[in-house]
Amino acid sequence: MLLNKIIREKINSKLMLTFTILSCLLVVLIFFGLYYKSSPLFTNNSIKDLLFSSEWFPLKGKFGLLPFISSTIWVTLISVIIAIPFSLLTAIYLTEYADKRFVRMINPLIDILAGLPSVIFGIWGVIMIVPFIKNHIAPALGISSGGYCLLAGGIVLAVMILPVIIHVVSEVFRAIPQDLKNASLSLGATQWQTIKYVVIRKSMPGIIAAIVLGLSRAFGETLAVLMVVGNVVKMPHSVFDPAYPLPALIANNYGEMLSIPLYDSALMFSALILFVIVLIFNVISRIILVRIERSLGIG
């Protein structure tokens, strides 16, 4: 009976360990799975061509991914550039200035924004952002644009990553000891000077980690961007040009990828690029955040 209990305990423990290790191995598994599926591509195309050529002619076996890669980078950068001021200002306001009751009112709203599915953001982009760019922003600048463009993708993405950045930055701000702020305040600094010179400076690694996390979120976002970005295979030259990011390429062509040779490999290679870049971003930001947690003795 007792022996039974011990043995069962051992088995349970090993079983749990197996589950844990297996799920962690998923990271490795996805990498090799995608690599394996994209490897046929490498016999006819060099990695350099795949990444830096803009010749995208699947029927001729040419798979230059540059237009997609640069679209992805552009749309991500635009979204982060828009999101950074809004999220930082909001996080500062909510942690340093706003009344507790106000914060308790706003936080659930930010949570709801974070929980909305990407297709909803996409629909919103189609209903509002695209027409607004087409009818107001572009004409105001003397440009003609169909509205389905990098800027539309960037704006929609920015709203999607705002909650992520606000959440992480607020946590970092809250971890700054009050006594450190007091040190600055007691010298006669205003609250804003204290925030500018002490809080932000001390939180800099955390702010960077939050932005990188937002970047990686934006990088892989598919449907919302796909719906508003235009999906034209062309190197974009301005924010009013349509673009074709990597996730959209994968999502749009899953149906026909089996009929053209190597097309499926090219799509899997796109997924691999996304995976690797997001992985790097994530690891960087997590390592920074864990360091902060440890140095402040929390977590």
Partner: peptide, 20 residues
């Protein structure tokens, strides 16, 4: 309040050097 604080220097229980 900043003028009040400017008139007083504070030494706290633990030193809190500013991050600079």
């Amino acid at each position: 309040v900043t003028l009040i604080r400017k008139k007083m220097g504070l030494l706290s229980q633990r030193p809190y050097p500013l991050p600079m």
